[in-house]
Design a protein around this nucleic acid. Structure first.
Lengths: 351, 351
DNA sequence: CTGAAAGCGCTAACAA
DNA sequence: TTGTTAGCGCTTTCAG
């Protein structure tokens, strides 16, 4: 028995069974065993050139017996490409980014390209490190969700000069790359229209709780909201549940008894709803709440959230197309695709 | 202006500005420019051997001017290690795994090791592909959260024979590797004790809603629960919000009017609560609900969830230790660390 | 159809 | 202290 259930909290246990990692099996080993040259082995295993059936069988057999697995580093070094792409996300705890990461991975699953995800932990240095690390490993493409509209620019530019780079969801300012995202202005306009409609019938103060405009998406959403509701109160923080909850708690404690709370992310909206409930109030009775993103967690909202849904599946397949095109050499120029989100009117702010 | 805001939904736009990716800068380029040998450049840039100050300066200057970044493939191929580890998760949409991924990344941030995350999308083939891909890229270590207790075994075994492998949270059966996780039996026992206490005072039927025991964690939790409550109804599904919601909806529609609902994951508990609310009932008034995991999203629960919290920070730092030890060559044997979780009694099932 | 050999970019002996 | 060189494992000319 090597894995025991009765260890104390975190107690360290060692099992002194074999820990040996055998030497790697290389093409040479397979070639030797099959009695052919390494070139032949390579050709058989990659099916890159015709090889006599008999040799082919010997090679396949030898490779199987030895448990051969190609060293992808050698291959990539030789070919100048690694059949992989890197995805740099600001933060995996933000369920929107986690969903995006999941969907990008899924979208590439049917191609021969591996997707590696690197979390920058909302830190500009980590973000740069992630990019440099991917570039150093010769990824075929880089998908970036930049942390900061301004401060991420130099890292994104660096990336764009060394590899096919696609910015996703957010855009670093004045860097030319491919871009895939949603039309945030259009999405927030949908929300604004909705809010107008409901306040016409049921007048309440409107308050915006959203992220500071340090990312392009926050920027665009806030900007559009501000134009639609110029004299409206805005509370700014980060794209987190905690911020939404704390901001709303503060508003309630200040005496805001009823309102339409417009947020620029579902996670924030969830925080807002939690604060409302914690104060014994109701949604949409006392406070109407709207979100933004409409994927993953927005489903967790109770009551169901009125929000704007980004077409994530289309966005990720656009990314796949761009990466493939870049290798089929389909002309120069940057592809920019902004998908229109759709309004979902649900119980947190019904019509 | 290359990025326009007025595109139609997903309309394709091309910006025909420079798309050129310049040839890579190599050690040779830097060496030529600095007028030294490539060895000297390597030594300066890695600070691996003393170099005359004057040369050093010339090298640093040249590298800077050319924007040199090492090709990590060449380095890894030569050194036989890549200064990276791979983390294979079953699914990034499960917020518990997303949190784990985030925390593992953070834990390695201060070391020189890059963490790459690969989502297996709850698919055994993808999981195997992820493992093979990481092994082929010569990762220094592999952290695996196996999808399936039985069916992941061969892939995990493969990994364990080729690289330092740590199973996290879940354990594939009869494979010897390092393991870091929480003591699920202990955790579920804490829940069972809590449930006994509350039902002694306030008798209600107890129902278990949890994942099918196809992963070791689900297995251990279900098993412990079943021993504590042998004749209790159990509804089994997957570790998802949707399952929890649908299972609970069904129970309510079948006429279950009050109960203690024990789940084996916070995501499931959130689904349960959503179903309760959707049916106009209350937590903990009509139904008490308990969760498991106690990180990330469990905070999103409304009301706050009684759950068992896994000490994720300790778990991830244990992983860092194992990886480092494996390279400082601190003896053979597998480290097994099972951390004790702690009970958090909150409003969804108060005392 | 097959093999020999060059070489991707790098580090680490080994020589000087 | 510095340079030359071998070679990590692979693919791909180039010969045969």
């Amino acid at each position: 028995m090597s894995h025991m259930d009765r260890d104390e909290g975190g107690a360290r246990t060692r099992d002194h069974s074999a820990d040996v990692i055998p030497p790697r099996v290389t093409l040479h080993d397979v070639a030797a065993r099959a009695g052919v040259s390494i070139a032949t082995v390579s050709r058989v295993l990659n099916d890159s050139r015709p090889v006599r059936t008999e040799l082919k069988e010997r090679v396949v057999l030898a490779a199987g017996e030895l448990g051969y697995n190609a060293n992808l580093l050698g291959r990539a070094l030789r070919q100048g490409r690694s059949h992989s792409i890197g995805l740099v996300v600001p933060d995996l705890e933000n369920p929107f980014f986690a969903t995006l990461a999941q969907d990008v991975s899924r979208a590439f699953a049917r191609s021969r390209i591996d997707v590696y995800v690197y979390s920058a932990d909302n830190d500009l240095e980590m973000e740069r490190r992630a990019i440099l690390s991917f570039l150093g490993r010769q990824v075929d493409g880089l998908v970036l969700i930049p942390c900061d509209e301004i401060q991420s620019a130099s890292s994104v530019r660096l990336a764009s000069r060394a590899a096919v780079t696609i910015q996703l969801d957010r855009l670093a300012r004045s860097v030319n790359t491919h871009y895939v995202g949603c039309d945030n202005r259009y999405g927030m306009a949908l929300i604004a229209t909705h809010v107008r409609e409901v306040t016409d019938i049921d007048p309440r103060p409107v308050v915006f709780i959203g992220a500071r405009p340090t990312s392009s998406s926050a920027h665009e959403r806030l900007d559009t909201f501000s134009r639609a509701f110029p004299d409206t109160r805005r509370v700014l923080g980060s794209f987190t549940f905690e911020f939404g909850r704390d901001a709303m708690a503060q508003l309630i404690e200040e005496g805001l008894a009823t309102a339409v709370i417009v947020t620029d992310a579902d996670v924030i909206a969830l925080g807002v709803i939690a604060a409302v409930h914690a104060h014994g109030a109701t949604v949409p009775g006392d406070y109407r709440v709207t979100g933004f993103d409409g994927v993953g967690v927005s489903l967790l909202a109770q009551p169901p959230l009125t929000t704007v849904r980004q077409p994530v599946a289309e966005m990720t397949s656009a990314i796949v197309d761009i990466v493939h095109d870049a290798f089929e050499g389909s002309g120069g120029g940057y592809v920019v695709r902004r998908f229109k989100p759709t309004l979902l009117v649900r119980e947190s702010s019904p019509l």
